[in-house]
Design a protein around this nucleic acid. Structure first.
Lengths: 201, 201, 201, 201
DNA sequence: CATGAATGAGCATTCATTCAT
DNA sequence: AATGAATGAATGCTCATTCAT
């Protein structure tokens, strides 16, 4: 049986998983998380429902894999952008710009990811957007923390700062959810500007 | 028959509707929107499932009534706060403070309302948080618009400004969703500060 | 409590029952037997659901009263028409003509009656159109029986003859079910003609 | 997924569909259309309710499949009988005889089919027996039309003629609804005789 | 490797009926 | 005489999951 933790995957398995993740993204964007049943996803992937359960062990595992897939790439892109800068303010701007640039270039994936994060619930009913750990925002925390220590950012509890940044950066994505072809540049520009101004002492 | 359009409500009807709305709020907070089935809500209200349909015509109508109930009060509270100020910057701060103060004082209601806004889908699958109209944010639009005209707020598209404000103001509520007893004051303070700084020229 | 067998009815009771029967007829014609719930009927009558149960003891009793009301009048009209003739062939024609003439003049009542007869089921699931007794067709049986004895009608089992006559006479009514304003004269004419020709030796 | 439009059916699917159609026929005959719930049908078929929805997409689809199944065969049998004759009168007699012979030989199916036609309602409340199209009665229309042109049948509107024939031919089936083991030969004989006499000039 | 088959738990909704007032 | 309130049983349907092949 295919396990999501298995270190060694056959070629077929890797391909199938990618195909199913793509189908899940398409499905979520087309009909929304709630109507994205296994049956709908399987149909779009051109496979049987049971194939999904075969490659992922459950519907939940598939959707979580979508998130992992999308947000890992996003994280990498953002980290690269930040690495090009040395000072916290420039890093924060790079973080935001890198984030929004990735969003702009991967609309379908990010939109589906956000829909899942907002709609999916863990077994006890908690939405995923409430379950983020400190680890998830490590890069951002590093930047903010350093900036506060440097005295260039207003001092405030780190988790508050992180929450504010993430809220502002989600604004352009939310606009994409309304219309996948929207021009989000105005949102991106003002989102970043508000961010920089809001954090600077 | 109890109808939601009925102009005259009996005493019992008014009481029962309030009771059922309260039960819905409790249920949504306890187990989340998705698991808040008629059966769970009815159980918590101590009535039969059909009693809900008797007073509201459907599950959807009940949940929408929760929203109407909660957000109407919120709107009034905010409008009163704003009316006490004359200048856009003071008005914006009053808007934010009024909003967050209401949230702080009506945690369960607002939290449940946000959960519904985020989770409920219209017939075509659109979440409610994407369906807001210009009318819904009229007070805020007025303040922002006046402030930009006065040259005290940075000029930007109105819908961008509205989205940014709402995103920032949702940060403390999101913290409440994590823990209904959380101290949101730090979030509120920084949220308002970031808001004021972010918008001022 | 109002009983359908009660010999003495108050004025109010009689009026209310007539009003409810009329509402039932309207409802059945407007939305069909299956959707004609107590609630729909009560609404059209402008009374509470429980008022129906108060005057008739159940939904079934109401609908059966509609039938009694409609078919009693029909029976009387037919009997009068038949009484004007002496010979079986003339009587049969009078029966048919009287029947169809009543149908033509009381479209709504008869149409609703037929819908009920076809759709309503007794507790054991039998439709009413299968539960007719010999008594219900006594006049017709008398005519047919006499005609066969006279040798003017083809001899055949009485219940077969009755079934054939009733089937033919229902043809125009069926057309009315399609369109309450239909011109059923062509159906009536041919129905009677087929009847007379079909039975004559 | 089993779809009613699927062009290729697996062996199991074909067998199950036949089994479920048979169970539906049994159920309708035993307890009538109205009580023939998915649950009752599934019980009689020895499968879960959801199995029905798996093979047919809805309860309605199952019952409509029963009709298709039964009436397609009936139509073929009748067409064959008619094809053996050349002249309208002989063809009409063959039509009637073929029809009634099929009914006699497939009592359960036809009886259930009639119950469905009489009881099932389309979304707008119209019973199926009112929704027949000209196409459904094409063979009969051809015979009657030719006979009238030849001058051997009384001239009358075609739709009237069709309605009369169908009404007469339903008489024996109605008797079967009363008792599935009834001897319908007397009904069949007189039904055909009345038909021939009724239409001949 | 992948499927078709089958299930069972859960859901929102309908509705005739009961009953206290 | 009449009602509003409340119920409970039943219904069609959805869907993730299991399993033999």
């Amino acid at each position: 049986m295919a396990s999501s933790e298995s270190p060694s995957r056959t070629f077929t398995e890797t391909a199938r998983r990618a195909q199913l993740i793509a189908a899940a993204i398409t499905t979520v964007n087309e009909i929304g998380y709630h109507r994205a049943s296994l049956s709908e996803i399987a149909q779009r992937a051109g496979v049987a429902k049971s194939a999904i359960v075969y490659y992922f062990s459950s519907k939940e595992a598939l959707l979580l894999s979508v998130l992992e897939d999308v947000f890992t790439r996003l994280e990498i892109a953002v980290a690269q952008a930040v690495d090009a800068e040395a000072e916290p303010p420039a890093q924060l701007r790079a973080y935001a710009r890198g984030y929004l640039s990735y969003v702009d270039g991967h609309r379908a994936e990010v939109t589906a990811g956000l829909e899942i994060v907002v709609s999916h619930r863990t077994e006890d009913g908690t939405p995923l957007y409430l379950t983020g750990t400190e680890e998830d925002s490590q890069v951002l925390r590093g930047i903010l923390s350093a900036g506060m220590d440097d005295g260039v950012f207003r001092r405030m509890p780190l988790k508050v700062a992180v929450a504010l940044v993430e809220a502002l950066l989600d604004v352009p994505t939310t606009e994409l959810q309304r219309d996948l072809n929207a021009n989000i540049e105005p949102f991106a520009v003002e989102s970043v500007e508000a961010l920089m101004k809001g954090f600077t002492v």
